[in-house]
């Protein structure tokens, strides 16, 4: 009895792995550090809310990225998709003044990029790394071409309310978007057959295939899902900044991948956690926030953030190899 329990516990610890806790430990340490060194500003409720709100687009994209990485693929095009969808939505709003049309066009553009990525991965059978590297450049180029490098203002109040500054039940709307995306992602990954199949495909495509899982369909779906979450992130940027510019989302790819990996999702497929990605994303945002409060300039922030990401990612990946 005690031996069964023992092996069970050990098996559990090994399968969950201490690496999956790195993000929580890191989160608490970082929180305490800023809380102690920057007490006055950092712990202010407005500031804490700001951390979550600032993280909203990254969190939304991270949820999509969890599925892509879990399936053993990667999507490098998300940063470019953010800019293109924000621009597409802003231009549509300018022309039509219909908030829903702007949102719809933005999401459709994103999904279309996902379909193109999926087509080349599943039909032409190229590695997703190469395909999305190419579409990353392609999509960025289209965004620039579309607006001749000009920024496009967003003035539609409904759109700004829904995707930016609105409040619902006393809470900022961006918080609701974050919560909704995380919840849907968590249900899909942990509670639906879809998530089980995504993880299986990332773990062993051949085992999945002989078990009747449609491997290419899963690959297509994770890529479309990832591009769609990037599109939603684009709408959130456009709503919050009340405009779109081709530079939007430029540095988000690194932040998203870092948040997801630090959160405990495997870079090599088969393991994924949506909650981990949420905490990872909040951690990135908190670091950003704390560094600004600490008075670091932008270049110093980038250096410190790069180092922190490097340390955090190597910690979580090392834990993985040991298990």
């Amino acid at each position: 009895m005690s031996t069964t329990l023992n092996t069970r516990t050990r098996g559990w610890v090994r399968s969950v792995g201490w690496s999956n806790y790195v993000v929580y430990i890191g989160f608490i340490i970082t929180f305490l550090y800023f809380a102690i060194t920057q007490t006055q500003y950092f712990l202010d409720p407005t500031n804490l809310t700001n951390i979550v709100i600032q993280a909203a687009p990254i969190t939304v994209m991270a949820v999509g990225a969890v599925f892509v990485l879990s399936a053993g693929e990667i999507d490098l095009s998300i940063g470019s998709v953010v800019a293109l969808t924000a621009l597409a939505a802003a231009v549509t709003l300018q022309q039509t003044h219909q908030w829903w049309l702007g949102a719809l066009v933005g999401l459709a553009v994103g999904a279309l990029v996902g379909l193109v990525n999926g087509f080349f991965v599943t039909v032409v059978r190229l590695p997703s790394f190469l395909v999305t590297l190419a579409t990353m450049g392609l999509v960025a180029g289209i965004g620039r071409q579309l607006t001749q490098l000009q920024s496009v203002p967003v003035t539609d109040t409904s759109f700004i309310y829904l995707f930016g500054g609105g409040r619902l039940l006393g809470l900022p709307i961006l918080l609701w978007w974050t919560a909704a995306t995380v919840f849907v992602g968590w249900v899909l990954l942990r509670r639906k057959r879809y998530g089980a199949h995504v993880l299986a495909v990332g773990n062993s495509p051949s085992a999945s295939r002989v078990s009747g899982i449609r491997v290419n369909r899963i690959r297509m779906m994770v890529l479309v899902g990832s591009a769609t979450t990037a599109a939603l992130a684009g709408l959130l940027y456009a709503g919050r900044l009340q405009g779109a510019r081709y530079t939007l989302g430029e540095s988000d790819l690194m932040t998203v991948i870092a948040a997801v990996i630090v959160g405990g999702t495997s870079l090599f497929g088969g393991k994924g956690t949506v909650i981990g990605a949420l905490v990872g994303s909040l951690l990135m945002s908190m670091i950003n926030n704390g560094l600004i409060l600490a008075g670091l300039n932008v270049s110093q922030q980038m250096i410190v953030r790069g180092i922190i990401i490097l340390v955090a990612v190597s910690l979580s990946l090392r834990g993985k190899k040991n298990s």
Binding site: S15, V187, K192, R193, L199, A200, S208, G270
Partner: peptide
């Protein structure tokens, strides 16, 4: 599938679901 429990492998591709939301 290495990173999944025995029971998920037993039902791989034919997972049991319950409820109107067809949750695992």
């Amino acid at each position: 599938v290495d990173d999944q429990p025995v029971y998920m492998n037993m039902f791989l591709g034919r997972e049991l679901v319950k409820g109107p939301l067809r949750l695992l």
